[in-house]
Design a protein around this nucleic acid. Structure first.
Lengths: 178, 178
DNA sequence: ACCGACATGTAAGCTGTTACATGATTCC
DNA sequence: GGAATCATGTAACAGCTTACATGTCGGT
């Protein structure tokens, strides 16, 4: 269900094809649908059946048909309704913490190695979201408020990985002292 | 798959029944399996088939049979192997950020209301994890190192929600200024 | 008399990932 | 010649949630 609304969100910005949407989802942490064919194309079919989007088929001389989807007024209304619905808490699946919970069974060097690998992974991810944020606006910027909101969304991700990095560095240091 | 290993983790601490495991999973943020019957009971069957756990059936005079599961040496080896495997990045599904991404379509009061509800939800959750951390140790504390690791895991959760709370308060304030 | 905790399990359905399948165009 | 991008879709499977189903015991 939220995937449908996220699609409507992008279409409220501009008409797009399934392929475009796929790329958008892949590009932003905020939209946690990994740019997955199966879900996006079937969601578009459902949205079209529900008349929340309209479809225009462009047939170029060469290559496959492009199906460009546009949001309808019913779609805009549905999007607005979702925006007003009570927010969900972030769902965090932090498997590394579950791994750490039993990591006392490891030797000191093994534990340090594990923490080191995690530190490196987080660091790489942090670089990724930082670069993502600086990418010249591939994002809606219709009003100053919208620009502000997107900036704060990016900041949320950046500071999440920054704090995670600081946390793992602290753990690594203090665990060596034990 | 990780669920199986998490079960082995708890059983490396002490023998438990499916019901006990369900309560453990429900009690800790760190183990993101919502205390769900279906998954836990079937996972135990699979672990038993793989001989990673052994089963003892206690039949009390009244009531249903209690099946107490104990980890085997093969199970301990499998757990250790998982602990050494490369850590995964945390998977964060932050739907509120996706909602905010399109929230410029809302009136100022509507947006403030949305942020206010989210702030309250995060605040309640923060209280929950704080209380969870102070709960008299229902957790393994076999060595100082293990005690330290569990404390740092709890701290990770606490600071996540603290930062989220600070973030939403900032956004709310600054969005009012626009 | 009813509710919650104890204790086990099954069924249906939604979500999500990976891989398969096709075919043209552009860049190296 | 081969890889990447554009562009659409399908199939199989794994993960996860919700609800159903049954029955005892202790507390209010």
């Amino acid at each position: 269900m939220p995937l449908q609304y996220a699609i409507l969100g992008f279409l409220s910005w501009q008409p797009l094809t399934g392929y475009d949407l796929k790329k958008q989802f892949a590009a932003w942490e905020t939209f946690p649908w990994s740019g997955n064919n199966n879900q996006i194309y079937t969601a578009l079919v459902q949205l079209h059946r529900a008349a929340l989007v309209s479809k225009e088929v462009e047939q170029p001389e060469h290559g496959p048909a492009r199906k460009v989807y546009t949001i309808t007024t019913a779609g805009l209304a549905a999007l607005r309704q979702w925006l007003l619905s009570p927010p969900e808490l972030p769902q965090v699946k932090h498997l590394f913490l579950a791994q750490l919970a039993w990591a006392d069974q490891l030797a000191p060097e093994e534990l340090d190695e594990l923490l080191g690998v995690y530190e490196e992974e987080i660091y790489v991810k942090l670089l990724m979201v930082q670069e993502q944020a600086q990418r010249p606006s591939d994002a809606p910027q219709r009003t100053p408020r919208e620009r502000y909101l997107w900036a704060m969304i990016q900041q949320n991700w950046r500071s999440f990985y920054e704090h995670e990095l600081a946390w793992v560095r602290q753990v690594r240091q203090e665990v060596q002292a034990l």
